[in-house]
Design a protein around this nucleic acid. Structure first.
Lengths: 299, 299
DNA sequence: ACCATTATTGTCTTAAAAGCAATAAAGAAT
DNA sequence: ATTCTTTATTGCTTTTAAGACAATAATGGT
């Protein structure tokens, strides 16, 4: 029995919920799928699918098997592709997903040069603060707030992502210049909203983390607007240093220093990471992009 | 092409370094393997093996492919087995690997009862302080000092493994009763040797970790002997609390308290973990043993 | 109760892997 | 250096397994 073929059939039947639909995908009669899946079930000695003429449903064990096996098929396809594209020049579609901020400010400007270097790579860049899994087939490279979901994924720390508070000089003169987080209750906060909700202002006071957020003057996931409001003396904005630094350099905003310091997360290691599938590193287009991005961004 | 079969052939050829040897394993002519592997290479468009009449060697890309693919075959086989053994009673060989100490004191006594509960499970218990990977097919359950090597492996914290120092009352009266780690330099140490070497005596003094080991009176990986020597007033022994507690309770040894405390590791989370493959939890023998052990040991 | 859709089963055809003998190559032994 | 032996490969035949297609059975919706 060609178990691999049977597995591909099985997985497709599950995904489409129908033998006939799945059969169309493979351009073979539905009877073939029926036979192969039956073979598979026989060889495993368990029923994977509950069939009826209207719907195909997974059994409990079938669901578990599907989950494991579909992942494995994915992995295998990736390994195959890695070999197939071995020692060819970088080409084909390269999907990159990045957080909007870093995407606009850092990634897009860089990728112009990348496109000149590797003209046969067609870039498909998606900016979103939602996290799209690099595990499935959908994205080749992701740039995200840091974490490595599992051991098949590589995460390279590109840069710091420390959130710092800033405001205009004029705002501080009017409202006072806070130095301790507790003084923030008399101020106005301009809050960035991540997909996880409003980014809080935290501080480690007297041995424990406390939310020291000031009353909100505005909340948005549009960083530019918050900065605009801050420049208009409307409050204190807290965003990553690399976002604010141009404004700090031009003197349009000034950084606020607190003791104890203000933070957006309890964990110390809040960085921006480049994430990709370990096993796909040798796919030329992936390697080229990873190496390129790391060389240009990492410090 | 039956890619799965080709992969199995390929992997076996690599492992045995020979087409003929591998062919024997599958009871098919070597020509079949030759053809299947050639098919595989053709479909991938790359040479995986460098053949000569005397030896078969991997190419660079072949080595990478082998590594990924052999792992995947393993996983698939485990998934298959999980389905095959679904809803049958626990039976078959169950391999458990544990650290010698905990194995002798905790595991073996418990497994008597387990054997009565599940008579069809044949236990294969290996006690060793070397770590054997639960990832490959060799061990079903491992009990180890804590860590989860990757996301396919589950690690359940069973119990604390804090190392504490102890000695006899008589020894202390003779040699003095140390209360600060620095005083240990005038004492005698009975050291346990793990596979990583002698377990050091550490203490966090003035903001940094220091090795405060006393001069060695004896070093061994045989805990019983060290305890014997300690009971004979030969020095201070440092071992896990669960090892020493019977002696402390009988008053044969007394625990030493230091300020700052003594430790065997810089990390706070030194525990004993039960480790198994996530995807094999539903294999009855594995589930039975995991549930049994967790219920009996975990507190 | 009927209809349309869908999965399954039977039979034939086609494709692919196994089996076996023969050949070619390359390190080991003389 | 030359033979010998082992090993991978190739050609050809046999066997096995999957695809095709028509027919049947079952089931949920109308």
């Amino acid at each position: 029995m060609d178990q691999l073929r049977a597995l591909k059939y099985f997985v497709k039947v599950v995904e489409l919920g129908s033998f006939t639909q799945a059969a169309k995908v493979f351009s073979v009669p539905a009877s073939s799928l029926s036979r192969r899946v039956a073979d598979l079930e026989k060889s495993l000695g368990a029923t994977l699918l509950k069939r009826s003429t209207r719907a195909v449903n997974l059994t409990e064990i079938g669901a578990e098997y599907y989950q494991q096996v579909s992942e494995l098929l994915n992995q295998l396809e990736q390994s195959n592709e890695a070999v197939r594209s071995y020692q060819t020049e970088p080409m084909g579609k390269l999907r990159i997903s990045a957080m909007v901020g870093i995407g606009r400010e850092v990634l897009i400007p860089l990728m112009e040069e990348f496109s000149r270097l590797y003209p046969k790579v067609i870039l498909d860049i998606e900016l979103s603060d939602e996290l799209s899994s690099v595990g499935r087939d959908d994205v080749d490279i992701a740039i995200r707030g840091g974490y490595a979901p599992n051991d098949r994924v590589m995460a390279i720390r590109l840069m710091d992502n420390q959130f710092i508070p800033a405001a205009t000089e004029q705002y501080l003169q009017k409202m006072g210049r806070p130095t301790h987080p507790n003084q923030l209750s008399n101020h106005k906060g301009l809050y960035y909203r991540s997909p996880n909700g409003r980014v809080p202002w935290l501080s480690y006071i007297d041995g424990q983390w406390q939310d020291v957020s000031a009353p909100a003057a505005a909340i948005s996931n549009v960083g530019e607007w918050l900065i605009e409001k801050a420049k208009n003396h409307d409050g204190i904005v807290m965003m990553p240093r690399w976002v604010l630094s141009p404004f700090l350099e031009r003197g349009e905003l000034v950084e606020l220093n607190f003791e104890p310091p203000l933070s957006a997360t309890q964990s110390a290691d809040f960085g921006v990471y480049l994430i990709y599938q370990k096993q796909r590193y040798h796919v030329p287009k992936v390697k080229a992009a990873v190496d390129f991005l790391v060389a240009r961004i990492k410090k």
